[in-house]
Amino acid sequence: MNHLRELESESIYVIREVVSQFENPAMLFSGGKDSIVMYYLARKAFYPAKVPFPLMHIDTGHNFQETLDFRDWLVAETGVQLIVKYVQDSIDKGRAVEETGYNASRNKLQTVTLLDSIEELKIDCAMGGGRRDEEKARAKERFFSHRDEFGQWDPKNQRPELWNLFNGKKNMGEHFRVFPISNWTEMDVWQYILMENIALPSLYFSHEREVFERDGMLYAKTPFIKNKDSEVVAKRIVRFRTIGDATCTGAIESKADTLEDIIREVAATRTTERGGRADDKRSEAAMEDRKIEGYF
């Protein structure tokens, strides 16, 4: 059996377990390739029935327009329910405080909006597209990850996960994060997208864009980032390896405009895809800290 088919079967099994073990699950959707693949697997898991849970987008308000257009197209095309929750609302309510300065980002504030939404909507399981190969704190994450009533992750006290027996039992007020594509690597995701011919936002493919350089990385010129006087904005041929908040997602110079070219480029690349994410560069344990607080 081909490795992609085995990963696909495993992920579908996990998504079906979620629907069987939880009363009110939701799937977190960012518009990035991992959540697109995860949602595609969910459609396979229940076909010909509709996906029996909503997609939830935590919108920082700092998205690339291409991501939002793609999201709305996919939702219309497949007839799934979409819930959008806005970080701006959390800021307006005083639940979150906007960062200031040149490196200001709403990436971290998403956690507040996410946890508030989980509580408000009584979501007992939020599926996410996190992968264990992304980052070292994620390497120790379970498929079924328990969160206490504060939404926190306790990395040193995780439930052992044996065979294919997933324990989703919990007390009132607690919830789970489930990561159906835990065992996929960046390369697996790309190969699967190619094998299944899955549609993606245009940002992943090479295009011309106004960018500037900061700390050795390229960022898109957007109204959400305050530029320093020394930063030169210029048009370059770029694409994105990951798609997140526009303030912390780095672009790479690339001419890859087909899936085949992207796969060749990924195979030859010498940095991890999260290497282009300013949010992980804040400290050695940046991801671990955010995950403990309840980040994706």
């Binding site: 264990r132 190969d133 120790k140 990395p155 690597t185």
Partner: peptide
């Protein structure tokens, strides 16, 4: 090392 960690290569 505290916990099971998963690694990937091909």
């Amino acid at each position: 090392t505290i916990d099971v960690a998963y690694r990937y290569f091909h």
